[in-house]
């Protein structure tokens, strides 16, 4: 094996497929976006070089709501990290204790992950509908009629209303990752904790959590990056509305590129999204300090 690893030709050959994929699907499109972002272009006619003007426009005297879109994505990321992941951890911890129907619950929690986002969006649209929505029906049924409203029509409630399906859809995904990690831990340490008199809660926080740090780090990266890239459910539920209340960088970017046909400015948004993804990944890695 050592001989193989010291053979540079073999290393190049093995790395080539991954490099080719990385080059074709990451480096080239990102470079093209970077190139476009330095131009003013409607996608059809001639391009005009404008330097960093598009980037300046994103952050200085911005009028199209890019900064608030980034803020909304940040809120989704916070909700994912502080609501979705703890929920996933709770479910994973409970299921890993060999509860009855463990496999059944695993499947049930994972179902939203395999359902198409279009279906998920339609499902939650029906729940939040102001006229016939399930949520308003339930609130009315329990005497809380004054709380009923058109959830997706009000800027104050629209963002939480789209965050809930996003969290709901991927709880099972993170749960499965954590569940697998917990199952991989030696049963001796749990045995020892029980002998020492640790409660289930203490075991989960002091034993399980520190021992699955690497997978927690992966989950946090997925959750944060996924939040920055979130598009499908938001687009299908609100299209970024009402009046930009659920706008995230991706929905704004698509509108800028393909509706406003400002390919240069939209590409600048794409570059910023890529940079934010890289930056946050690095920060999370540094925070967890896991080799």
């Amino acid at each position: 094996m050592n001989k193989l690893l010291s053979n540079k030709k073999a290393i190049v050959l093995f790395l080539f497929p991954a490099f080719a994929i990385f080059l074709t699907f990451i480096i080239v499109p990102s470079s093209v976006s970077l190139y476009y972002s330095l131009h003013d272009w409607n996608g059809v006619g001639a391009m005009t070089f404008v330097g960093i003007k598009n980037y300046v426009r994103l952050f200085v005297n911005n009028t199209d709501g890019f900064t608030s879109a980034v803020w909304h994505a940040g809120l989704i990321a916070l909700a994912s990290v502080f609501i979705q992941l703890p929920l996933s951890f709770c479910f994973a911890s409970i299921l890993a204790r060999r509860v009855r129907g463990e496999r059944f619950y695993l499947t049930v929690f994972f179902i939203p992950v395999i359902i198409s986002s279009t279906v998920v969006a339609q499902l939650w649209l029906k729940i939040f509908n102001g006229s016939y929505g399930l949520l308003n029906y339930l609130l009315t049924a329990v005497g809380l009629e004054k709380w009923t409203r058109a959830w997706l029509a009000k800027p104050q409630t629209a963002l939480p209303a789209v965050i809930i399906p996003i969290i709901w859809q991927y709880v099972g995904y993170h749960m499965l990752l954590m569940y697998t990690a917990i199952k991989g831990l030696s049963s001796d340490i749990f045995e020892a904790a029980r002998i020492d008199g640790a409660t289930n809660f203490q075991t989960a926080i002091r034993i399980t959590l520190p021992n699955i740090r690497p997978i927690i780090r992966v989950c946090v990266i997925f959750a944060v990056i996924g939040s920055l890239k979130s598009y499908d459910i938001i687009f299908m539920m609100t299209k970024g509305g009402p009046i930009g209340a659920t706008e995230v960088p991706t929905t704004l970017m698509v509108e800028t590129l393909f509706t406003a046909q400002r390919y240069g400015y939209g590409s600048a948004m794409a570059v910023i999204i890529i940079l934010l993804c890289f930056l946050l990944s690095l920060l999370i890695k540094k925070f967890f300090k896991v080799e």
């Binding site: 001989k3 193989l4 053979n7 030709k9 073999a10 050959l13 093995f14 080539f16 497929p17 080719a20 994929i21």
Partner: peptide, 18 residues
């Protein structure tokens, strides 16, 4: 032998990609 095998594997991977 290992070298031949590694080259063969890489070629198979490339074919897979193609």
């Amino acid at each position: 032998m290992k070298k031949t095998l590694s080259i063969l594997l890489a070629v198979v991977l490339c074919f897979g990609l193609a």
